[in-house]
C-alpha cells in the first residue's frame, strides 16, 4: 500500500487480444426496449463495476464495487402535428368542419395536457368560427359525432403515457361570406399541465415517479396549424340553335330540323358534384330520337344504360357526374318543327 505501481490504462490492457466468439445466430438483443422519449421517469440507474482476477489456485475471484444509484426525472415534452395531408376543402356557411391534429407526449412520464385552438391567426384570408375541440375517443382517426368526446379544458385534459398520442379534432364553422380559394388557419396548442417554459425549468417534486419534472427541449408547449380552403364552383350554360329547313335553307318552317347546342362551362376551384344538364323539348317540336351528343359523341336515349344521356318523353338530360371548375362540356340534340 505504500509504493504501489500505478497501472496506466495505455500500457496495462490487452483489449484487442480477446477473441470474438460470437456467431451471428448466437447474438441476441440484450438491451431492453427503451422509449423513444427516453428512459421512463422514476427509473433507477444502478451502476456496479466488477473486477476479477486469478486466486492463484486456478479459480477466479470476483469483486463488486459499491452500487451507484441515480433516478431518472420526468422530462416534460410535447409535440402537436397537423394530420391533414393538405388544405381541407370547405364550402361557405358549412358547420362542423374538421381539422385533425396529433398530440404526442414526447416526455418520459405520464402527463396531462391542456389544449386550446386559435382560429384568429393572422396572415390567412379569413377566420373560422370555433365550435369545439373533440378527442378521438375511439381512436380511429376520424371524427365521429356523438361518439368522440368533447374536450373541456380542466375537466378532461388528455393524460398521455410517455410516447403516447391522441388524435384531436378542431371543429369550425365557415363564414358564409368566405370566397372561393380563401384560406383559414387554425392552430391547436398543447401545454403540459405540470408546467412549461424555458427548457431546463424544474418543478421540484412534481415529476412522474416521485422526482422532479424538468421542462424539455419543446418547452412542454407545442402547437401546429391546419388550414381550410374554400372551394366554390359554378356553371354557366350557353344555348344556341341552328336550323336546317327541308329546302336547304335556314327557315323555321314545319319539317325544319333545329340543332340545339348547350355549352356548360364550370368555374371556381371547387367541384360540382353530380352535375346534370337537362333541357325541355320546346312546344310544337318533336325530339329526334337518339340525337343527343356529348363532346361530339352519340349518346342513347335510354336512362337504363351506362351512358350519360337520356330522354324521358319531355326533356333530354345528360348526367355529367362530378366536374371540377374550369371545364367545358358541349351537348347537342335535335328537334323537328311540327
Amino acid at each position: 500500500m505504500t509504493s504501489g505501481l500505478i497501472h496506466r490504462a495505455k500500457t496495462g490492457f490487452a483489449g484487442g487480444k480477446i477473441l470474438c466468439l460470437a456467431s451471428a445466430t448466437a447474438l441476441l438483443a440484450a438491451i431492453s426496449p427503451v422509449q423513444a422519449a427516453g428512459t421512463i421517469a422514476g427509473t433507477d440507474i444502478v451502476n456496479v463495476a466488477q473486477a476479477s482476477y486469478d486466486d492463484g489456485g486456478g479459480g477466479t475471484i470476483t469483486v463488486d464495487s459499491n452500487p451507484v444509484t441515480i433516478t431518472v426525472d420526468e422530462l416534460l415534452d410535447v409535440t402537436v402535428v397537423s394530420s391533414d395531408t393538405g388544405d381541407v376543402p370547405v364550402s361557405p356557411g358549412a358547420t362542423s368542419q374538421v381539422l385533425t391534429y396529433q398530440v404526442t407526449n414526447t416526455g418520459n412520464g405520464t402527463e396531462a395536457f391542456t389544449l386550446s385552438a386559435d382560429t384568429a391567426r393572422t396572415g390567412d384570408d379569413f377566420d373560422t368560427v370555433f365550435e369545439q375541440i373533440v378527442l378521438d375517443t375511439n381512436d380511429n382517426g376520424v371524427y365521429d359525432p356523438g361518439v368522440d368526446t368533447i374536450y373541456t379544458p380542466g375537466t378532461n385534459d388528455p393524460s398521455l403515457a410517455a410516447d403516447e398520442s391522441v388524435t384531436v379534432f378542431v371543429l369550425s364553422e365557415i363564414p358564409a361570406a368566405a370566397n372561393d380559394a380563401e384560406r383559414a388557419e387554425v392552430e391547436l396548442s398543447a401545454v403540459a399541465l405540470t408546467g412549461s417554459g424555458t427548457p431546463g425549468t424544474t418543478f421540484t417534486g412534481q415529476g412522474d415517479g416521485g422526482g422532479d419534472a424538468v421542462v424539455g427541449s419543446t418547452g412542454a408547449d407545442a402547437g401546429d396549424s391546419g388550414f381550410f380552403v374554400v372551394q366554390v364552383a359554378d356553371v354557366a350554360l350557353v344555348k344556341s340553335a341552328t336550323i336546317v329547313d327541308p329546302f336547304g335553307g335556314t327557315e323555321a318552317v314545319p319539317g325544319a330540323t333545329i340543332t340545339y347546342q348547350l355549352v356548360a362551362t364550370t368555374s371556381g376551384t371547387g367541384t360540382l358534384n353530380n352535375l346534370t344538364i337537362a333541357d325541355d323539348i320546346p312546344n310544337d317540336t318533336t325530339y329526334v330520337t337518339e340525337s343527343i351528343t356529348l363532346e361530339g359523341g352519340a349518346l342513347t336515349d335510354s336512362d337504363a344504360d351506362a351512358d350519360e344521356g337520356s330522354f324521358d318523353g319531355s326533356q333530354i338530360a345528360v348526367a355529367l357526374g362530378n366536374i371540377a371548375g374550369g371545364q367545358t362540356r358541349t351537348i347537342t340534340f335535335q328537334v323537328t318543327i311540327d
Binding site: 490504462a9 490492457f13 460470437a22 440484450a30 431492453s32 427503451v34 427509473t43 463495476a49 473486477a51 482476477y53
Partner: peptide, 27 residues
C-alpha cells in the same frame, strides 16, 4: 489475470472511453 467489467445500466448508452483500450460486448 486481472480484469474490470462494467455492465451498462439499461438506461445508459455507451459513449466511449478517452483512450479506447477497452473491449466491449453488445450481447
Amino acid at each position: 489475470d486481472f480484469s474490470v467489467t462494467n455492465p451498462l445500466p439499461k438506461a445508459v448508452a455507451f459513449n466511449g472511453t478517452s483512450d479506447g483500450t477497452e473491449i466491449v460486448s453488445v450481447d
